[in-house]
Design a protein around this nucleic acid. Structure first.
Length: 423
RNA sequence: GUGGGUGUAGCUCAAUUGGUCAGAGUGCCGGGUUGUGGCCCCGGAGGUUGAGGGUUCAAGUCCCUUCACUCACCCCA
C-alpha cells in the first residue's frame, strides 16, 4: 500500500516535542494572568466574510493565502489565517464590552495560510494571541509590549530585538502615503521590478525591500513619524516614555510597516537573528476602529501575536523534557503476570507512574525495558516470589534489592516511591 | 506562484572517473548470564538506492520527467 503522508507545510508535534509546547503554553497562561488577561478558546473556522472585512480584501492573506471552502449550505467558510478577527467577533457577539470597560483576552491555537513553506513558515502554524479592548491610552500600549517582553524572557529567550513605530491614524496616514508614492515615483526606474510593482499594490512595503538600490531610495524617503498628527505624535511619545519608565529596550524603526491593514498608531515587532529569513517571533499593534468596523461598539483595541514555532526555534537549550517511570514491574509466569497487572493499575491510581509489558519476556529483556524507561525502581515478581508471597524491589541506581510482602505491597511501594520523590 | 539545493536501512550518513558498492554507525530483536539493566563481545532482522523512463555490455552514480523534502523570493507569526 502506498503510504499517506501529512499535508505539505503541516507538521506533527511529536511526543518528544509536545512537553516543550505545553511548557510554553503554561508559561504564557501564568504570565498573562498576572496582567489580568483571561483565556478565550475560539473556533478555527469562521465565515469568510469576517476575514475579508478585517484583514482587508487586497491583502495577500485574503487574496491568495486563505483556506476557503463552500459549506454544504452555500456559506463560505475559512480556516482562520490569524486570530484577531475571531477574537473581535466573539467580543462583539457576546457583548463583552458591557461587562467591563477594558477586556483583556488571550488565545492559543493553530492558524492556516496557504503559503510556500520555508524555515519558520508553515501552512498550519501556532500563535499565542493577546488582545486588549476598550483602552486607547499609551500606557496600555507600553504595558502590552512589556508583557510580551516579559513573557519571552520567562521562556528564557533573551536574544531578540524589539522595534516600534507609529503608523499614524486615519487622519495623518493618507498624507504620508501620498508623499511616499510621490517620492517613489520620482525614482521609479531605479527601483527593483518588485518594488515598481509595489508602488501600485502596497507602497509602504518598499520600506522592507532588501536590495541596495531600493534601500538608497528609501533612505531619503519621507518617514511616517514626520507626518503624525498632534494626537498621534503625543500618543507615540507617551508610549516611548512609558517604555522607558518600564526599562524596556527598544529601537524606533520608522520604516517598519505591518502586514495587516487594520493597524493604527503603535506597531511593534520582535525579531531574532536565530531564525533565518522569517525572523519575526512576534508582532502586533493598535487597531482602534476595527471593532466598530466589524459591527461592534466604538472601542479601542491593541494586540499582538507570537509565532510558537518560531519562538521554539529561538529557544537556546531545548533539552528534551522526559517523564521517567517511577516503577517498572517485571513479571515472570502467568500467575505473576496477573498480579503485576493488578498492582500496576492500583499504583497508577495512587499517582505512581508504572510501566510493564503484557507480552511474556525474559527477565533480562524486562530489566532492559526498565532501564530504557529510566525507571527509578523495578519490582520483580516471579514464581518463587509468588510462592513466598513476596516481591523483589530493586533500586535501579543503587542496585539494592529488598523483598517486600505481597499483602502490604501497594502501601509500601507508595510510601517508598513518594518518599524518594520528595527527597 | 517563481528559483536554488537535496532525496541510499527506523535515524545520521558512506560508496574513487559509470565496473562485486548496496555498506558503516546508531537504534531495534536475540544470545553470551536456564531469573537481573547500563559497559563489553557475538549474531539477526531491516533498502525494488523517492518514483517512472532513457543512454550503456554495465546506472546509487549520466540524461529526461515526476514527486517529496528543504532554503530563498513573495509575504508574514
Amino acid at each position: 500500500m502506498e503510504k499517506i503522508t501529512a499535508i505539505k507545510g503541516i507538521k506533527d508535534i511529536l511526543p518528544g516535542d509536545a512537553p516543550l509546547w505545553n511548557h510554553i503554553e503554561t508559561v504564557a497562561r501564568q504570565t498573562f494572568v498576572l496582567f489580568g488577561y483571561k483565556e478565550i478558546r475560539l473556533p478555527i473556522m469562521e465565515k469568510t466574510e469576517l476575514f475579508k472585512r478585517s484583514i482587508g480584501e487586497t491583502t495577500d492573506i485574503v487574496e491568495k493565502e486563505m483556506y476557503t471552502f463552500q459549506d454544504r449550505d452555500d456559506d463560505f467558510i475559512t480556516l482562520r489565517p490569524e486570530a484577531t478577527a475571531g477574537v473581535i467577533r466573539a467580543y462583539i457577539e457576546h457583548n463583552m464590552h458591557a461587562y467591563e470597560t477594558t477586556t483583556k483576552l488571550f488565545t492559543i491555537g493553530p492558524m492556516f495560510r496557504r503559503e510556500r513553506p520555508q524555515k519558520g513558515r508553515f501552512r498550519q502554524f501556532h500563535q499565542i494571541n493577546v488582545e486588549t479592548f476598550g483602552e486607547d491610552k499609551a500606557q496600555c500600549d507600553a504595558e502590552v509590549i512589556f508583557m510580551l517582553v516579559h513573557f519571552l524572557q520567562a521562556t528564557r529567550i533573551y536574544d531578540f530585538s524589539l522595534e516600534i513605530n507609529s503608523l499614524g491614524c486615519k487622519k495623518c496616514r493618507p498624507a504620508f502615503s501620498q508623499n511616499v508614492i510621490k517620492h517613489l515615483k520620482g525614482a521609479e526606474t531605479r527601483l527593483c521590478p518588485n518594488c515598481q510593482r509595489r508602488i501600485k499594490t502596497n507602497p509602504l512595503r518598499v520600506f522592507d525591500c532588501k536590495t541596495d538600490s531600493c534601500r538608497a531610495i528609501i533612505n531619503d524617503a519621507p518617514e511616517v513619524l514626520q507626518f503624525l498628527c498632534v494626537e498621534c505624535e503625543r500618543h507615540f511619545s507617551e508610549v516611548k516614555s512609558s517604555l522607558n519608565d518600564l526599562s524596556i529596550q527598544y529601537k524606533i524603526n520608522p520604516r517598519m510597516v505591518r502586514g495587516l491593514d487594520y493597524y493604527i498608531r503603535t506597531a511593534f515587532e520582535v525579531t531574532s537573528g536565530a531564525l533565518g529569513a522569517q525572523n519575526a517571533i512576534a508582532g502586533g499593534g493598535r487597531y482602534d476602529g476595527l471593532v466598530s468596523f466589524l459591527g461592534g461598539p466604538e472601542v479601542a483595541g491593541i494586540g499582538f501575536a507570537i509565532g510558537m514555532e518560531r519562538l521554539i526555534a529561538c529557544l537556546p537549550d531545548k533539552a528534551e523534557i522526559t517523564f521517567p517511570a517511577d516503577l517498572f514491574i517485571a513479571a515472570l509466569g502467568d500467575q505473576a503476570q496477573k498480579k503485576a497487572f493488578v498492582f500496576a493499575n492500583q499504583l497508577r491510581r495512587a499517582g505512581i507512574a508504572v510501566e510493564m509489558t503484557y507480552t511474556e519476556k525474559s527477565l533480562k529483556a524486562q530489566m532492559k525495558m526498565a532501564d530504557r524507561m529510566k525507571s527509578a525502581f523495578t519490582l520483580i515478581i516471579g514464581e518463587e516470589e509468588i510462592k513466598n508471597n513476596i516481591a523483589q524491589l530493586r533500586n535501579m541506581h543503587t542496585k539494592k534489592q529488598d523483598a517486600l510482602p505481597l499483602d502490604k505491597l501497594t502501601e509500601m511501594l507508595i510510601d517508598i516511591i513518594k518518599k524518594k520523590g520528595s527527597d
